[in-house]
């Protein structure tokens, strides 16, 4: 019934319209790519001659006037460290809390659940000033670890909520079967329950990593020393100085920074498409 149907004009119009509004986005990302490998573009995105000059930040210093930019590799390492730590902590803590909220019963559980829901909607950036004070107080200002803690805390309600959902989906009977087969609670947890929510954990981890990798506002506000810069801050500074001057360099640096995101899109193209994006950004 569906195969031989001829497309109606209205349907064709919708296709065209969708293609038209989507075009600028595709165009912009194409530019990012071609701009990074060429110093001259035709029609905005067709490269005229290939050059690696724009990628020079990978092997040499970038200077503007007398200003010398930081080497990108330690900064990349910082970003990896930041995103990696956020991922690890967020997954670990939300696994623990999600399990408790899903399968344990204790006084105050309902309250914690409701608070989590509200926090899930509550935008942490509104608290930036106070967060500055807190970080300063606990001696974590200007440290990557400080940004890690904040980012983890602000993403925890959502991650915990998701993980709780995964635990909720595992039927009690499976857990019970494990007890009948002779498992202790701990054994049932890591031999039977954890393996079943692996895909969910992976998804939470991926999103935690990407969120950490993309993180800008906290690094920008709470980190001052250049040795603690992350790629986001580095690129922001680069844009400040090279805008109008060298878009090729900016495109290359931007693309370099995008690598994990692109990898994510290529690897998970289908399975992760419909997954949670809510509440992360406005």
């Amino acid at each position: 019934m569906k195969a031989i149907k001829i497309m109606s004009p209205s349907r064709i119009a919708i296709y065209l319209l969708l293609a038209a509004v989507s075009f600028p986005i595709v165009f912009a990302y194409l530019w990012l790519f071609s701009g990074s490998i060429s110093d001259e573009l035709e029609f905005g995105i067709v490269p005229k001659g290939i050059t690696l000059e724009n990628w020079r930040f990978l092997w040499s210093e970038i200077t503007i006037g007398t200003k010398v930019f930081e080497n990108i590799w330690p900064i990349t390492l910082n970003s990896l460290l930041l995103a990696g730590s956020i991922t690890l902590l967020e997954v670990l803590i939300s696994l623990l809390a999600g399990y408790a909220l899903s399968r344990m019963n204790f006084p105050g559980k309902d309250f914690i659940l409701k608070t989590t829901i509200i926090l899930h909607a509550f935008p942490g950036v509104a608290l930036l000033i106070a967060l500055y004070y807190v970080l300063n107080y606990i001696g974590m200002i200007d440290k990557i670890a400080g940004v890690v803690l904040i980012k983890v805390a602000l993403e925890l309600p959502m991650a915990t909520w998701m993980i709780k959902g995964f635990f909720d989906e595992i039927p009690w009977e499976i857990e019970w079967a494990a007890y009948m087969d002779g498992c202790s609670r701990l054994q049932a947890w890591y031999k039977i329950i954890l393996p079943q929510i692996k895909p969910g954990i992976a998804a939470v981890a991926i999103f935690a990593f990407l969120a950490g990798w993309s993180e800008f506002i906290y690094s920008y506000t709470f980190i001052f020393s250049s040795e603690n810069y992350t790629l986001a801050v580095f690129l922001k500074n680069l844009i400040g100085d090279f805008r109008f001057l060298d878009y090729g360099l900016l495109a290359a640096a931007g693309l370099f920074y995008m690598i994990p995101v692109i990898a994510f899109f290529l690897i998970s193209q289908k399975s992760l498409m419909t997954i949670k994006f809510g509440g992360i950004k406005g």
Binding site: E173, I174, W176, A177, Q196
Partner: peptide
């Protein structure tokens, strides 16, 4: 030994 209505086999 227990056998559940949903069988509760370990899917993994």
């Amino acid at each position: 030994g227990m056998c559940f209505q949903s069988y509760a086999l370990y899917p993994h």
